[in-house]
């Protein structure tokens, strides 16, 4: 389970302190299927992505920045989720906001897994000086509170989606690297790796043919958790007005803007909160399923 922003060595060890379910009959009975919870979570994420991709090609979704109606309209047939503080369609906005959140999350996770994966492999396999320097670099990166670093960097460098994805990705490099390093070191001592070495396999071959396949599943399970954490931090940035600037809709920005009309139009707050919550919950639940699956197969 979820560490909203943060270090993942702990995310793996601590937040799921009970790998106990792995051996319980209930889990074993679930067999190879994913289970209903995980399917619902996957369905939600897939549905949201499809909506975001199709955008205004869909009947109920229009231009998210057009003022099509009076402010604070309650849900109606023309606006299934009502309108916001200046009469824009809330459904369109919440769907278009996914076009900001989801790609940034995907980009950030790609950066974190790639950079963290490479650092983790190198430091875990080579050890020695490389390891020491690597650990020290990671120490520096984790010596800033995540949100503060993201705020400062975007304030100084700008707020394009690419900058956001890179900086949010960098926040998750240290945990990804430590995870990969741990599993690389553990795998390096396994019999089949030792055997490959004795047989004279090159180091590159050992890394890519023996170690990487053993490490990747753990990295992927962490990637899902990291995606949820990135969405939360990006949400906090946009809530503070420090992510992609308006008029582009963002979930955080919608939640901030809903503030002034809470008494008459709570739906303007509740819709983005519900969508954001469902997305983060789906990713956290999936990450949990994946992790207990890994524990089980080990």
């Amino acid at each position: 389970m979820p560490v909203e922003q943060g270090t993942p060595s702990a995310a793996t060890t601590v937040t799921s302190p009970d790998p106990a379910p792995a051996g319980t009959p209930a889990r074993r009975g679930a067999g190879r299927g994913l289970g209903p919870g995980a399917l619902v979570a996957l369905g939600w994420l897939a549905g949201l992505s499809v909506l975001a991709l199709l955008g205004d090609a869909l009947p109920f979704i229009g231009d998210p920045s057009r003022m099509t109606s009076l402010p604070y309209e309650p849900p109606s047939s023309a606006h299934p989720l009502g309108t916001d503080e200046i009469g824009r369609d809330v459904l369109s906005r919440v769907v278009y906001a996914a076009r900001v959140s989801l790609p940034i999350a995907a980009g950030a996770v790609a950066v974190a897994m790639l950079v963290g994966g490479i650092i983790g492999l190198l430091t875990g396999f080579l050890r020695g000086t490389v390891d020491e320097v690597g650990q020290w670099l990671l120490d520096v990166l984790v010596s800033f509170p995540p949100l503060i670093l993201a705020m400062a960097v975007t304030a100084f460098l700008g707020r394009s989606p690419v900058i956001l994805a890179v900086i949010l990705g960098l926040l998750f490099v240290p945990p990804a690297a430590r995870l990969v390093r741990t599993h690389t070191m553990a795998t390096s001592t396994r019999e089949y790796v030792v055997a490959a070495r004795v047989l004279g396999a090159s180091r590159i071959r050992i890394v890519f043919r023996e170690i990487v396949p053993a490490v990747v599943p753990h990295l992927l399970a962490y990637a899902v958790l990291a995606a949820s954490a990135v969405i939360v931090i990006e949400g906090a940035l946009s809530f503070l007005g420090l992510s992609i600037p308006p008029p582009t809709p963002t979930w955080g920005g919608m939640i901030t803007a809903a503030r002034d009309g809470l008494a008459e139009a709570p739906h303007v707050l509740l819709v983005p909160v519900a969508v954001l919550f469902a997305t983060v919950l789906a990713l956290n639940g999936l990450a949990d399923t994946l992790r207990s699956r890994l524990v089980e197969t080990r």
């Binding site: 389970m1 937040t15 919950l281």
Partner: peptide, 9 residues
């Protein structure tokens, strides 16, 4: 799990 999935803002 719910509380951990509800961002602070």
């Amino acid at each position: 799990l719910g509380l951990l999935s509800l961002p602070m803002f």
